[in-house]
Nucleic acid binder design. Structure first.
Lengths: 201, 201
DNA sequence: TTCCTGTCGAACAAAAGTTGCAGGATTTCC
DNA sequence: GGAAATCCTGCAACTTTTGTTCGACAGGAA
């Protein structure tokens, strides 16, 4: 019963290579070689290279949104600030748990293609809605001039992706499973400190 | 006297296409077509596609570092916090002035290649040194536990690149030359507010 | 057996980066 | 001012690489 063993191997190899060399910088032969399967396996399982990309990204975001929404639901009756803090923790934790995919997808989303636009509509719009809603709820009591809220939201969203863009400079700090956990806790605390300042001023 | 007119056209077209589709996602024929020059011009002027990349990135960072260092020199006798604020302003202003190249290079630097490693050693190490030095000087008086300084530095560096990664979400705000200026001022102020909080707490 | 799933190698067409060469334009030098 | 050298452009061709597909074959399930 070696069910779909090759499929898993392809996904694993592709994640690693896409992360390292980018989507266009990786050939299906690279992937097949790294996964130790035949070249045609990629087309067989995923309907080609593009299909492999769509499969990986879709799976990533489906789970991502599910995790986020579960968190928000569980914290439904919490205070606005607690809810947001919990959301931040969940997001960083999820991203850290799929580090390579996170970095890769984050990079790919800065491109301008049909596929990216589809992902933006299908998933990023929802993600953005959840973060914005939670953040604005926290800011609800405060009087802020004009578009200042937008700039603060941008700052927050920036903090949620920074570790996965400056990853090269920080990878030395995150090696074992344990240090992943440490990083999540410390970094989330850093963001939450910023948040506290925003609310209290 | 149409000196190197084609060369300029190639650079311009390449910047735009690399920004939009990435380096590996853009072919020399794409570039030649957009620039309305012959395919062989790319090899003629830049020694191939890779040479074009190196030319553009090198030029970008040479000027970037020169700008940064000129700012720091001019602000030599200022207070630490004023110096850092001025540095932040200079950086954001420069990045905004070459928006497409900034976004493109930022993305390309998240890859793992020989070229990227060279750029990190040659330029990013210097950039990092200037930012870190200026930031740590501001924090000099404060007692902060362990690696908290590092996390704050990361937060700062994140803010300096966020607009050029979340660019897709923010491009609506930045259209004319005037709005570029407005954006720089407002966004720099947002960062400086954060900085003020860090220093005073 | 028969059927279905998975694997493999070979092959193909398209795309990519590069190069050589010829002709035209421009500059340089006498 | 004219000849010579240099620079630039355009076309075509070549080599490699890339993504995909096809048919053959093995092995377990029905």
């Amino acid at each position: 019963m070696k069910k779909n063993l090759s499929k898993q191997k392809v996904i694993h190899a592709a994640s690693s290579l896409f992360f390292q060399k980018g989507f266009h910088g990786t050939s299906v032969r690279d992937i097949a070689q790294k996964a130790k399967v035949n070249v045609s396996s990629v087309s067989y399982y995923f309907n080609g290279k593009q299909g492999l990309l769509e499969y990986a990204v879709t799976k990533y975001y489906e789970e991502y949104l599910k995790t986020i929404e579960a968190t928000l639901e569980a914290a439904e009756n919490w205070s606005a600030i607690d809810r947001l803090n919990e959301l931040i923790f969940t997001i960083i934790q999820y991203k850290q748990s799929k580090l390579q995919l996170t970095c890769f997808i984050q990079r790919e989303l800065t491109l301008d293609s049909v596929f990216v636009r589809e992902m933006v509509i299908t998933y990023l719009a929802k993600e953005n809605f959840h973060i914005r809603t939670a953040f604005y709820n926290v800011l609800a009591g405060k009087k802020l001039p004009g578009d200042e809220k937008d700039y603060l939201l941008m700052q927050l969203k920036g903090m949620l992706i920074t570790p996965y863009i400056l990853h090269n400079e920080w990878k030395d700090r995150v090696i074992g499973d344990y240090s992943h956990e440490v990083f999540v806790n410390k970094y989330v605390k850093t963001i939450q400190n910023w948040l506290k300042f925003i609310v209290e001023n």
